[in-house]
Design a protein around this nucleic acid. Sequence first.
DNA 1: CTGTTAGCGCGTTCAC
DNA 2: GTGAACGCGCTAACAG
Lengths: 346, 346
Amino acid sequence: MAITIKDVAQKAGVSVATVSRVVNQKDIHKVGVKTQQRIERILKELGYYPNTMARGLKTRKTYNIGVVFFWYEKPSLSDFYLTRVLDGIISFISEKRYNILMNTFSRQIQNEGVYANFVNSGLVDGVLAIAPPVESRFYQDLKQGSLPYVLVNYQVNDPNVCFVDCLNTQGMIDVVDHLLSLDHKRIGFIAGDVNYSKNALDRFNAFKYILKKRGLAFHEEHVYFGNWTEQAGAKAVEVFWKTKNPPTALIGSTDMMAIGAIRQLRKQGLRVPQDVAVVGFDDISNDSTLTTVHQPAYDIGYEAAKMLWNQIEKRPLEYTHRFFPTKLVVRESCGYYLKNSQEQKS
Amino acid sequence: MAITIKDVAQKAGVSVATVSRVVNQKDIHKVGVKTQQRIERILKELGYYPNTMARGLKTRKTYNIGVVFFWYEKPSLSDFYLTRVLDGIISFISEKRYNILMNTFSRQIQNEGVYANFVNSGLVDGVLAIAPPVESRFYQDLKQGSLPYVLVNYQVNDPNVCFVDCLNTQGMIDVVDHLLSLDHKRIGFIAGDVNYSKNALDRFNAFKYILKKRGLAFHEEHVYFGNWTEQAGAKAVEVFWKTKNPPTALIGSTDMMAIGAIRQLRKQGLRVPQDVAVVGFDDISNDSTLTTVHQPAYDIGYEAAKMLWNQIEKRPLEYTHRFFPTKLVVRESCGYYLKNSQEQKS
DNA sequence: CTGTTAGCGCGTTCAC
DNA sequence: GTGAACGCGCTAACAG
């Protein structure tokens, strides 16, 4: 059995209250200097560490924040830009000496009660929900609970609900305009699963919106709904290239899918970007040739953690909704430089 | 204030003991069927969720496992193969309905007490330490504490201490032999920080060992100690190419450093692999041209979690030390295919 | 300056 | 079948 405050008190010949004062440095000026020193010595000697459970039960404060993310087929951090969001969260949260209590749920199977259990267990001081599923039961439970929370990559209309997101729409507009500027008219779109991801939905909608606005036709057969994996990207290519007029350019709603598409294209003997231009979204790849949309995942995580922390510590919030701009990163996979150098030659 | 067991008891007109029996399905056969049903209804109605703190205080069980990893300059998941290890851990642990309590510490600054505090706080049922620093104070605290734990990528001689690792030495031997087979004699080595990483140390030692065994000279000036980042890889190239006879091949102790090296080489007008061969370690890159050593990070994480779980649940352990094999993945950056096709032509 | 004491919410023994 | 009561380890209000 671990050393308790009682053991320390006994050995020091004082009451637990006094030990508590020393441990927490609270009302410490009221404790005699010699007593304090003695207690501190015994604290070390015995190797006393406060039991967080007991303390939390009393103080209603755990110094844990819950971080929840959602997976599609199996739990995975690496499929998403999640890792960098987490980096941002960790960075902020560890500065403040909080722990992260991580939990993951399936996007598809929404187990009733499980979420609520996590939210109401009293184990965390607040919750960060990363890209929860569309129409999420999880969000409902969060809303009904009494814990502060911040949504990442999930926008809601309620001005009282905190969220952090990037401007997906603007990002997608930039992508399309970039491809248009390179004379692409038939653009294939590899979407994420719009039933389970708000992000995927927003990007897809933006695609349709801007196509219309620029007076271009939308081809149903050149849209593929994938599940964020490379395989999905590859599959999309297979499907598109069975149509009469395959696209001349592809947009992957995520980098992973764009990369999968590129692999498949090459497999089919097509060159990127000479034959087909490909653009991704997220900028998470180490593949330094992919043109993509950068979203500041780290900053998004950091900011979300900060917003949550402000709520937990009851500090004034500067804002409840926070948007980060995206940035088109032009590399080689779209043929921009190719075209440019050709033009220079001619 | 959240709903407590008391509220439920009151509303149901029973004692808390009875409610507790229903909630935990313990001694349930002793509870009257009608009483049980009524209580279950009210449980739902009121939205009761047990307070984990209170429960944990009583039962000494939290269903949390602590996962600790260590950072160099700033907390980061993406620099390492960590993400995939985490995936493995998450995968196993979430099946078992445990939560992950994540905490990160600096490799350089070893704050006394912080570790012990985490270990002894009673917040977790066990600890997974991922690649703790060499001669780690953290490991000491773990050892002194009473919690089960498993070390990942950290080998110790004690047969009672659980760890999971890969065969770094064999992996490095494969790398060197591969380069030798391609006629490289001057091999530059970009090491991790051997003072802070056991992995880095093992790999570096393996490099020296096999060099000697194969009768090759070890050149002090072609060793650079980096910090796992791309920048470090780039820096190594700068340093090596100031020497009289720069290497013809480079080994990055991690992929990140190998990638950084390649970038810098290209910047300096050198071609990879024609002028310089480069090999990495970890196989974490999306860059599909890097020859590297694959270690089954996911499996390592999964297995570590499993070993910990077995300890926590007091199941018999099949083994306490577990090694996974590495696999050399030959791609383009080392010139193997280049050489092969040339030979075919001639 | 220090100690006593009342709970925080829960599980569990022992009565009944 | 059910309930009363204790205690897990801690903080905080109050007493002295």
